[in-house]
């Protein structure tokens, strides 16, 4: 299911961000939304983080939100070799981000299904840090899809 959402142009393998705010901004920027939409979605994502960090620990964060200004589901994946201080639950820096943004109406429940899939994937990814060593975008996406397929 993540196959339809994982796009090479929405993947950043060398994130520059050092802070939570910079990370959210850098990830949203790959969607290339008009400025007004980008501002609103960023604001909503920041609000979501302020009520409870999506940095779930073990170096992974899954910022997510729904916003009126979107009309489809977007997924961005980012990797930071240095790590980002994201107020994660375990206090550790975050190296891998899955950012999921969706419109308010979601008739096929793509958003919740995707969030569930990412949750399972994150658990597998946390077991070994293989994702830190893949520098080819196609290979990176294939690695994620392969892990997603494994039960």
């Amino acid at each position: 299911m993540l196959k339809n959402l994982l796009k090479k142009e929405h993947l950043i393998l060398d994130m520059k961000a050092k802070t939570k705010e910079e990370a959210l901004k850098e990830l949203v920027s790959v969607f290339q939304l008009p400025e007004d939409k980008e501002q609103i979605i960023l604001e909503t994502l920041k609000k979501r983080e302020s009520i409870g960090s999506t940095g779930i620990g073990k170096g992974i964060a899954i910022p997510h939100a729904r916003s009126l200004v979107l009309d489809k589901v977007y997924l961005a994946v980012g990797r930071s070799k240095e790590g980002v201080d994201f107020d994660a639950l375990d206090g550790q820096p975050v190296h891998l981000f899955f950012m999921l943004c969706a419109p308010p109406q979601d008739p096929n429940t793509t958003y919740l299904l995707a969030l569930g899939k990412i949750a399972s994937l994150a658990r597998k990814l946390a077991k070994n840090r293989e994702y830190m060593n893949i520098d080819d975008p196609d290979e990176f996406i294939n690695y994620l899809l392969q892990l997603e397929g494994e039960q």
Partner: peptide, 17 residues
């Protein structure tokens, strides 16, 4: 308009949680 959108997004979050 900006505040109505923010309110909408917050209420979506509330529904979700």
């Amino acid at each position: 308009l900006e505040k109505l959108i923010r309110l909408h997004d917050l209420e979506k979050m509330e529904e979700e949680i």
